[in-house]
């Protein structure tokens, strides 16, 4: 449908993130959901490190959120964008939030509504970059042709993830060490080992 969305992809590299929250500030300025940021920007473990990272919708090919929605309120467009909940349908039940393996949907209880990143459909459908990717000072969120990322960055764009036995393929790419093999999201290892930055001073 929209060639703009076919020519360009969204790439996330948390390792470049400086935690400034420009993405969050700008997300709330988007016309479809003014005042409500749909992106997450969080420190990983502030006591250990200043590491932060953005989470926006990965736009799965086969979205678990849509599959578990009792109101059939989450739709995926032909160009691969998983939309935020349809306002007339969403009942705010949180099933999507519980199902999403990436922790994306935000549910607003009072409004009985789920909001999540729709890749700034109001912008991307008219040939603009998503708001977060436009403002991000470190290009931790980058929107552009895959060829640019492939030639100009050392990290590799990967959009396949394994959770348990489930392979999830997404429209959004995460910059990793490899683009070939799917990324194993090892929750057992995650549970047992945290991150620790090296300490540059003599202790």
């Amino acid at each position: 449908m929209s060639t703009w969305l076919e020519e360009n992809d969204l790439f996330i590299d948390p390792q470049r993130c400086i935690g400034c929250r420009a993405c969050e500030a700008a997300c709330a300025e988007c016309d479809t959901h003014r005042g409500v940021p749909m992106i997450h920007l969080e420190p990983l473990d502030r006591a250990e490190s200043v590491k932060t990272g953005p989470t926006l919708c990965m736009h799965c090919d086969d979205p678990a959120c849509a599959a578990v929605c009792p109101a059939d309120a989450i739709k995926r467009t032909d160009d691969g964008v998983v939309q935020s909940s349809l306002k007339p349908r969403c009942i705010g039940c949180s099933n999507c939030q519980i199902a999403c393996p990436f922790g994306v949907p935000k549910v607003y209880r009072a409004r009985a509504q789920m909001n999540k990143c729709d890749m700034c459909y109001d912008r991307t459908s008219v040939g603009l970059k998503p708001m977060c990717a436009t403002v991000c000072p470190s290009e931790a969120i980058f929107f552009g042709p895959k060829s640019v990322v492939e030639t100009q960055r050392k990290n590799k764009a990967n959009n396949q993830f394994i959770f348990g036995k489930q392979k999830i393929t997404t429209k959004v790419h995460i910059m990793m060490d490899t683009s070939e093999d799917p990324v194993n999201m090892d929750i057992v290892d995650f549970m047992s080992v945290g991150i620790e930055d090296s300490q540059p001073w003599e202790m």
Partner: peptide, 22 residues
């Protein structure tokens, strides 16, 4: 009443920190 990124300005090409956004 709001802002738009100015993507053709050569220094920041539309990029802004949260202070700029707000």
């Amino acid at each position: 009443v709001g802002f738009d990124p100015w993507e053709s300005f050569p220094f920041n090409k539309g990029k802004l920190c949260p202070k700029g956004v707000k």
